[in-house]
Write a protein that binds this DNA or RNA. Structure first.
Length: 388
DNA sequence: AGCCCTTTGAAGAGC
DNA sequence: GCTCTTCAAAGGGCT
């Protein structure tokens, strides 16, 4: 099993995994070159699959040794990267030949908008993550943590993001944020500790005990609307999103509600704990602002297409960092919400009708996977990186 | 107002 | 165990 350490001592070890080739392999997704790519990339693909698998399944207890891959990443020159990106360009467009929005095409007129040129990803916070100070002690008031969490991200739903890991995405090219962001949020990130579970004995239904040691849990502006029964001073975790229902029941309304209705509404009003972000989502969060700035695009769909291609253009090492971040996100999420399950949010978004899915499948649009039929039918068992 | 689009990845549901 | 489905972010577009 390949390891993340820069020593290259993993099972993939010795083998360079043929980074450029393997990337080209999934660049060449498409009808004509399918066979060629599949043949040439079979080996690297396996290795890549192992790598990704290892990144995901890496020892859950190894939080302390998550060294960021180091100098080895430099094996690939920028020229290679550029070549890959260029090579991918045509195939990526082939994926969405008809759907490519005009705005995206405009964006692509600038080569760097589609060439995966953003290689200067900042992982400083990823490293810092490993150095989060432990809680200052239960019962103590939080100490400001100025260095790590002096910036609040601004999710669309008006709540802070899940994890301190997110912080690093705002630098060095932070997404423009509303001027009143600090007033709205005033969020300090939680400090990740290796033993948060002892402090966050939460369940999905009840937030339970919240740490006094985590600044954003007790930050005054966020005390409002806390979903923490019995903890008026506590605030929900960033992943917790207030229910969409906005209107508060008037007293007389409440009196008219049946017990069942009230119970149902109470249930519906439970704060939503969002899923932890996966590697690609983390990557998108970081790079979106850059793409927007570079390509002057605004449509997220178009931006995401570009980001998807750039994601593929990333080197293994770069992707590995995001996989590692995502893994830590999941770990933290599990510690924060031990009883939470992804099924808790199932059906909370309005499901698209099956009829539409079927229509999409037959109509050459998106299939039930939310992707294109030919892509979903790709034989590669292991995820988009290895789509052939 | 609220869903759609678009991406990848994780995880639940169902067989 | 495999396939399918849903959700996670984002924000303009569309109904």
């Amino acid at each position: 099993m390949p390891q993340l350490d820069s020593g290259g001592g993993g099972a993939g070890g010795g083998d360079d995994l043929g980074a450029p080739d393997e990337l080209l392999a999934f660049q060449d997704e498409g009808e004509e070159q399918d066979d060629k790519s599949r043949d040439s990339a079979a080996g690297p693909e396996r290795d890549l699959a192992e790598l990704k698998s290892s990144l995901v399944n890496e020892s859950e207890g190894a939080a302390g040794d998550a060294g960021v891959p180091g100098a080895g990443a430099g094996a690939r020159g920028e020229a290679e990267v550029g070549a890959e990106a260029l090579g991918r360009e045509h195939t990526s467009q082939r994926l969405f030949p008809d759907k490519l929005p005009e705005s995206l095409e405009d964006g692509l007129k600038t080569p760097e908008c589609a060439s995966g040129m953003y290689k200067d990803t900042v992982y400083s916070a990823f490293n810092l993550l490993m150095h989060y100070p432990p809680p200052s002690g239960a019962g103590q008031h939080p100490q400001p943590q100025p260095s790590l969490h002096n910036k609040a991200s601004q999710p669309s739903h008006g709540v802070p993001q899940l994890s301190p890991l997110y912080d690093h995405f705002s630098s060095p090219h932070p997404t423009p944020a509303p001027a009143d962001i600090s007033q709205k949020q005033g969020v300090h990130r939680p400090l990740q500790t290796p033993d948060l579970s002892g402090f966050y004995s939460l369940t999905s239904g009840s937030m339970g005990q919240l740490p006094h040691t985590v600044s954003w849990f007790t930050h005054p502006p966020l005390m409002l609307g806390s979903g923490v029964p019995g903890h008026p001073a506590a605030i929900p975790h960033p992943a917790i999103v207030p229910p969409s229902g906005k209107q508060e029941l008037q007293p007389y309304d409440r009196s008219l509600k049946t017990q069942a209705e009230s119970k149902a509404e109470k249930e519906a009003k439970k704060p939503t704990i969002k899923k932890p972000l996966n590697a690609f989502m983390l990557y998108m969060k970081e790079m979106r602002a850059k793409v927007i700035a570079e390509c002057t695009l605004k449509e997220s769909a178009a931006i995401n297409q570009i980001l998807g291609r750039r994601w593929h253009a990333l080197s293994r090492e770069e992707q590995a960092k995001y996989y590692e971040l995502a893994r830590k996100e999941r770990q933290l999420h599990m510690q924060l919400y031990p009883g939470w399950s992804a099924r808790d949010n199932y059906g909370k978004k309005k499901r698209r009708s099956r009829e539409k899915h079927q229509e999409s499948n037959t109509g050459g649009k998106r299939n039930a996977f939310g992707t294109y039929p030919e892509k979903a039918a790709a034989p590669a068992p292991f995820l988009p990186m290895t789509v052939l």
